[in-house]
Nucleic acid binder design. Structure first.
Length: 576
RNA sequence: UACUCCGUGGUGUAAUGGUAACACAGCUGAUUUUGGUUCAGCUAUUCUAGGUUCGAGUCCUAGCGGGGUAGCCA
């Protein structure tokens, strides 16, 4: 599909872009715009991260050549981070079409410099080593409505704090015994300013620095300083960091020798209907086996969406459509589905596949005859060409395309009725064959030679129904998985309530393994990663994990819009 | 009963003191060898109350509603 690199297409303005325009107009940062995408490598990226990626990397593209976006791993907590995640994050960002060039960084690269800055702060009397227990610190922090109280260690000498801090680094202090705190204001209405923790002892191996350190900086400390060290101009994060901003600015102001003066602005994170987005909840879905992994096609992860058949262009388009504000909104997943349909409609090759085969015998068609019918590969793109599909006396149609007693408005095959075979001629149902249980097992039809493809006999009423089919003798069996929304509720967490559990709201029909689907023969050759539109059914993607040469497995990315299904649903609704 | 951010159609966004617009969703109709696509159209909006102003979605005040915040997580 349109997986090509991102073009710096015009993007609608938003409050962040307005801010940057103001900075540029005021001549700040010598006209540079340097952003960063700073994930912690503790999980897989999801569609919410894509919003941030498109923002930060998009900004760099829009403001080139004096602009760039860094990829920085915020790896300050060795107990949660793994190389596996570092790799998957890079893969996902690249897949989305973005490039950080030489600007791949790790907060852990700055551990030494960060340590030096901490000694500087201690020297200035702006940080101290606290020996209170974690419980005491919590108790003395106060509450949202009451101020905290100063630590008894708050006014210890600079020399003493420095000596203790060096012991912490040297590994002479056990975990939880001492921490380094900024000396700000224990009565601040902003909890983040009540002498926030800057460093803690963690005797854990780090995925990059190994055992070199047992003293690790906190996010609040490492983040602004890392930004400054890299020359970041605009540090963009989500709303929950809003009240970390004063601390961010405090550090930028009070640490001397920083090469840059970044500032932080916050935007609303993405929420989508019918899914959950927090890493903790996604992890639970994986761990408890509700899905088959981080890249299960039902997951809102980048890897899940990729396996589902979403294209990078469709995700970028989606991110452009949803905008950027500070409002905690809930985006309808239909917007995402629309984005991928738009891309796939223009680019996916068409194919005929029968999900639930029903045998049709064309009685007046010669037993030993085979003909080839020309079918267009993509009506939206003539350059995609055509292909030849075999047709013979026995074909399969979908069970959904035949009804003995159809509702009004039904255009498909029914006793005595006529439909057109897609790209082929019209057939009329003459007889229905049933098994002992009354189940229709075969439909016997006759075809009308005068209705061949492209031929419209004078005065003949137009057949309304056009159905897909495959030649019984030539069709190939394929594995098909139909995916639907993971949850039955728009907002699973909200619907579950305080005492409830969101996993109980998992859609039991979120995955349907279709047995016995039959495809036109060309699909046996479908290559991994290919996108198809199965006509009248939806868009399908050749699963990269489970497909084998000659034995493709198709994942349904999204169904086609189905206005008939709506009519049926409405009829059933009015009937009660 | 703290601080802080945010309230524009059903949903998401735009309008930078001057005709409230776009997209998604929904609904009509036309076209169509995909009940797809495309095209045309319809429905529907500024949280409330004051104030400033010739003029307020936008500025001010108050209220109401929602989010966030008391990790040695990020």
């Amino acid at each position: 599909m349109s997986d090509s690199a991102v073009s710096p297409a015009p993007v609608a303005s938003d409050f962040i872009r307005d801010l940057i325009a103001d900075d540029l107009a005021a001549g700040r940062n010598e006209g540079w715009v340097i952003t960063r995408f700073p994930p912690e490598p503790n999980g897989y990226l999801h569609i919410g991260h894509a919003k941030s990626i498109c923002l930060n990397f998009g900004l760099a593209l829009e403001h080139g050549p004096k602009a760039r976006c860094h990829l920085r791993f915020d790896d300050t907590n060795p107990t949660k981070e793994e190389t596996e995640y570092v790799d998957s994050i890079q893969e996902d960002v690249r897949w989305l079409g973005f490039d950080w060039g030489d600007h791949l960084y790790y907060a852990s690269d700055y551990f030494e410099k960060l340590y030096g800055f901490a000694e500087q702060l201690i020297g200035k009397g702006l940080a101290y080593v606290d020996e209170q227990s974690a419980e005491a610190i919590r108790a003395n922090r106060g509450t949202l409505t009451t101020p905290g109280v100063n630590s008894p260690f708050r006014d210890r000498s600079v020399e003493e704090s420095l000596a203790l801090f060096r012991k912490m680094r040297a590994g002479e202090v056990a975990e939880g015994v001492m921490i380094l705190r900024a000396k700000i204001d224990m009565a601040s209405p902003n909890m983040n300013m009540r002498d926030p923790v800057l460093y803690r002892v963690l005797k854990a191996a780090h995925h990059r620095t190994g055992d070199a350190w047992c003293l690790y900086p906190m996010y609040d400390y490492a983040h602004p300083l890392s930004d400054a060290l890299e020359g970041i101009t605009h540090s963009l994060c989500t709303l929950e960091f809003e009240h970390h901003r004063p601390l961010y600015e405090w550090l930028i102001q009070n640490v001397e020798g920083l090469p840059g003066q970044p500032y932080q602005r916050e935007f609303a994170r993405l929420s989508l209907t019918y899914t959950v987005m927090s890493k903790r909840k996604l992890l639970r879905l994986v761990k408890e086996g509700h899905v088959q992994g981080w890249d299960d096609p039902r997951m809102p992860t980048i890897s899940g969406l990729r396996r589902r058949g979403y294209t990078p262009a469709s995700i970028r388009h989606f991110c452009r459509m949803i905008g950027l504000t500070k409002f905690n909104s809930l985006t309808d997943v239909a917007v995402l589905e629309h984005a991928v349909r738009e891309d796939l409609n223009a680019n996916a090759l068409r194919a005929l596949v029968v999900l639930k085969p029903l045998k049709v015998v064309i009685e007046n068609y010669p037993e030993d005859q085979v003909e080839f019918i020309e079918a267009v590969n993509n009506p939206e793109n003539e350059a995609a060409g055509t292909r030849q599909m075999p047709l013979c006396r026995e074909i399969y149609i979908d069970q959904d395309d035949f009804m003995e007693v159809p509702p009004s408005g039904y255009h498909r095959l029914k006793p005595g009725g006529e439909v057109r075979l897609r790209y082929g001629f019209c057939i009329r149902c003459q007889e229905v064959v049933k098994d002992a249980s009354g189940q229709v097992v075969e439909v016997r039809c006759t075809y009308d030679e005068a209705t061949r493809h492209g031929v419209q006999p004078e005065g003949r009423p137009k057949v309304k129904g056009i159905i897909h089919w495959v030649s019984a003798r030539h069709a190939v069996p394929v594995a098909v998985r139909l995916y639907d929304r993971l949850f039955t509720e728009e907002q699973p967490e909200v619907a579950a309530g305080e005492d409830g559990d969101f996993v109980t709201l998992i859609n039991p029909g979120s995955l349907t393994n279709v047995e016995g689907a039959m495809a036109e023969p060309a699909l046996a050759e479908a290559v991994v990663g290919g996108h198809y539109q199965f006509e009248r059914l939806g868009y399908f993607y050749v699963d990269p994990k489970d497909s084998h040469p000659g034995k493709p497995v198709f994942n349904r990315t999204v169904g086609l819009k189905d206005s008939w299904a709506k009519v049926v649903a409405k009829q059933q609704g009015t009937k009660g």
